[in-house]
Simulated scan of single mutants.
Amino acid sequence: MRIKATLEKIPGGMMVVPLLLAAILNTFVPDLLRIGNFTQALFVDGASTLIALFLLCTGAQINLKSAGVSLGKGATLLATKWVVGAAIGLIAYTFAGENGLWLGLAPIAIIAAMTNSNGGLYVAMVGQYGDKTDRAAYSLLALNDGPFFTMVALAIFGTMGFVDGMFSFVSFMSVLLPIIVGMVLGNLDGEMRTFLDKGSSMLIPFFAFALGMGIDFGSIIEGGLSGIILGLLTVFVTGTFGYFVFKAMKWNPIAGAAEGSTAGNAVATPAAIAAASASFATHVDLATVQVAASTVTSAVLLPIYIAFLVKRLEKKGVHLPEDYAIKE
């Protein structure tokens, strides 16, 4: 069987196929691989560890001369994701009906879903279509994990003030450190750089499968049409804006589009904000299921959208990632 060749024929196949396969298993037979020990550690609970190892391998490929490019890309991704998500949230607050909803969506759900991105999906997408600077950009993009940037948007809108403890420098460093370790190893020893380079592609299907084991298609049903709409907005609005911002910067536009998703941990954001301000308690349950639906919808739809964009670039004669690779 030519498994690898078959997967490579599918746009994003090394990431999409394992992720969808795992999501199907998790939806219909969730306990099949939750049997403990090595099986569960690798196929269910291993996403964070595998992504951390992937980032270390990626860090080893970064020449210190190009580190500034990675930071610039990360800052651009972070800013674009937040500005677009916050702007749509402001529109929702402005045109919300008497029930406080816009298009059936809770504004807090919009901001929570659209300002927070799925780092695992981003890493998988740029792992296939981006270069090492695109992958290392995740070190800054990871800052949008959790409720902090949702709080910032709400504070700016005047609906609530800043809340202490929503940003942790230690958490930020915990994301950055594997990249730094890899960067040090790769710059000290060229042979280590070559050795670790293999992990940059080999790990993708494994952490994609583990990510899929956190997806339940039932969340789409529970969140209803409004949750699906939120997922569509997240992919097509934030992803498209990211695409054109990166294109304008003459960077790989696929890396810009790859932030068009909602992270699983964003599901907890409405409750965290409601705990900080009781004025949001009214819609916390609705917002939670809508964000959950957006998480699943964007996880399924973003790779398909990325594949479409890649095909569009290929028809124009663009070869990814070679044509956008940073020359050292």
Rank of each mutant, 00 (worst) to 15 (best):
I88K: 13
G89C: 09
L90E: 04
A92V: 00
Y93F: 15
T94F: 09
F95C: 03
A96I: 00
A96S: 14
E98L: 13
E98N: 15
E98I: 08
N99Q: 12
N99F: 04
L101C: 11
L101H: 09
W102H: 08
L103T: 03
G104E: 04
G104K: 07
G104C: 10
L105R: 11
A106E: 08
A106F: 04
P107V: 00
I110W: 07
I110F: 03
I111C: 04
A112H: 09
M114R: 11
M114W: 10
T115N: 01
N116R: 00
N116Y: 00
G119V: 01
L121N: 15
L121D: 14
L121G: 13
L121P: 07
A124G: 15
M125K: 03
V126D: 09
G127L: 04
G127F: 01
Q128T: 05
Y129Q: 01
D131I: 01
D131E: 09
D134Q: 10
A136L: 13
A136I: 10
A136G: 00
A136T: 13
A136K: 06
A137V: 03
S139I: 10
L141C: 06
A142H: 11
L143F: 11
N144S: 04
D145M: 12
D145Y: 07
D145W: 02
D145R: 03
D145I: 01
F148S: 06
F149V: 02
T150F: 07
M151G: 14
A153E: 05
A153D: 05
A153C: 11
L154A: 02
I156L: 15
I156Q: 10
I156S: 08
F157N: 00
T159D: 01
T159I: 00
T159C: 00
T159F: 12
F162S: 09
F162G: 11
V163G: 10
V163E: 15
G165I: 02
M166L: 15
F167H: 09
S168I: 02
S168R: 05
F169L: 15
F169I: 14
F169S: 11
F172L: 13
M173T: 04
M173P: 02
S174M: 11
S174P: 01
S174E: 13
L176V: 13
P178Y: 12
I179L: 14
I180C: 14
I180G: 09
V181G: 12
V181S: 12
G182E: 05
G182D: 08
N187Q: 09
D189K: 03
E191I: 02
M192N: 09
D197M: 11
K198E: 13
K198M: 11
K198Y: 08
S200R: 13
S200N: 14
S200M: 11
S200T: 14
S200F: 02
S201H: 11
L203Y: 03
L203V: 08
L203R: 06
I204M: 06
P205M: 02
F206L: 13
A208P: 06
A210Q: 06
M213G: 13
G214C: 01
D216S: 12
D216F: 03
E222C: 03
E222P: 10
G223C: 07
G227A: 08
L233T: 07
T234A: 10
T234L: 05
